[in-house]
Amino acid sequence: MGDCAFCAIAAGETPAAMVLATDDLVAFLDVRPVFKGHVLLCPREHVGTLPDLPGRLRDPFLAAGQRLATAVVDGLGAQGSFVAMNNTVSQSVPHLHLHVVPRTKGDGLRGFFWPRTRYADGEAEEYAARLRAALA
């Protein structure tokens, strides 16, 4: 899909701090993370919402989500993770994506109010590298 930001990332046309790349999936850091290390997992092919996900991608998608949830703990020292996706409503990019957000007790995240932060120059790649190492 020509105007989809996540399709452009998956195709390598738009740079991103890549965490995981397979033939079918990509995972990269959110540019406006809830907490640093916040990863977005997407199918490479344009899929709008979870109900649209082809059956052949269900298991690989969930398996990658599990690996990323483990990686934020092992690679970033988080105590756990918040894993979520929106379908249409509140979906800022209309391409299926799973949020994997590192969590620690007392981090201030309450309900569905998601404060956003930014990475300092070069910091996104450092976080992405730590997550890649935890996935290896």
Rank of each mutant, 00 (worst) to 15 (best):
L131I: 05
A10G: 09
P94G: 11
G48L: 15
D59P: 10
C4N: 01
R130S: 09
Y119N: 00
F28L: 06
L68V: 05
H46M: 10
D23I: 13
A16H: 14
H46D: 13
H95A: 05
A63S: 11
V47D: 03
E126K: 06
L62C: 07
L96E: 06
P60C: 05
V101I: 15
D24I: 07
A8Y: 11
V34H: 14
H38M: 11
A16F: 13
V83R: 00
L76S: 05
R118L: 10
L50Y: 00
A69D: 09
H97N: 04
F28V: 07
V89R: 14
L76F: 05
R118S: 08
R67K: 04
L98A: 08
C7H: 04
G48F: 11
F61N: 06
D107E: 13
F28R: 00
F113I: 15
D24F: 03
A21E: 14
L131M: 02
G106A: 14
S90F: 15
L68M: 14
V89N: 12
D3V: 14
C7A: 11
V19G: 02
L40Q: 00
H46Y: 08
H95I: 04
G77E: 04
V100A: 08
C7L: 12
V83T: 07
A84R: 11
A84W: 08
G111T: 09
A69I: 04
R58Y: 15
V93W: 04
A27W: 00
D52P: 05
D52V: 10
G77R: 02
L53E: 08
D59W: 10
V47Q: 03
P102N: 01
R130Y: 08
A134Q: 03
A21K: 15
F28G: 00
A124E: 09
A134S: 09
V100I: 10
R116W: 10
R130H: 09
A5M: 10
Q66P: 11
G65K: 04
V83S: 00
D121P: 01
C42L: 12
N86M: 02
G122I: 03
T14C: 11
A8M: 12
Q91C: 13
Q66V: 14
A84E: 10
L109M: 05
K36P: 14
E13G: 07
D121Q: 06
Y119R: 02
M85A: 12
A78Q: 04
V26W: 09
R67M: 02
G48H: 11
D52M: 02
Q79E: 15
T22P: 07
W114A: 12
G2N: 15
K36G: 14
V100L: 03
G48W: 09
L96I: 02
L135D: 01
Q79K: 07
P54E: 02
N87W: 09
M18L: 13
I9E: 12
D23C: 14
P60I: 09
A124P: 08
R58I: 15
G48A: 15
R132M: 02
A27I: 05
P102T: 07
M1L: 15
A136I: 09
G122S: 08
A63C: 05
A136C: 10
G111F: 04
A120T: 05
L20R: 01
F113Y: 15
G37A: 01
A124H: 10
G48I: 12
R32I: 11
V26F: 06
A120C: 06
A69F: 04
L57H: 02
K36H: 15
H46N: 03
L98I: 03
V83K: 02
Y127S: 07
G77W: 01
Y127H: 07
R130V: 11
E125F: 08
A63I: 04
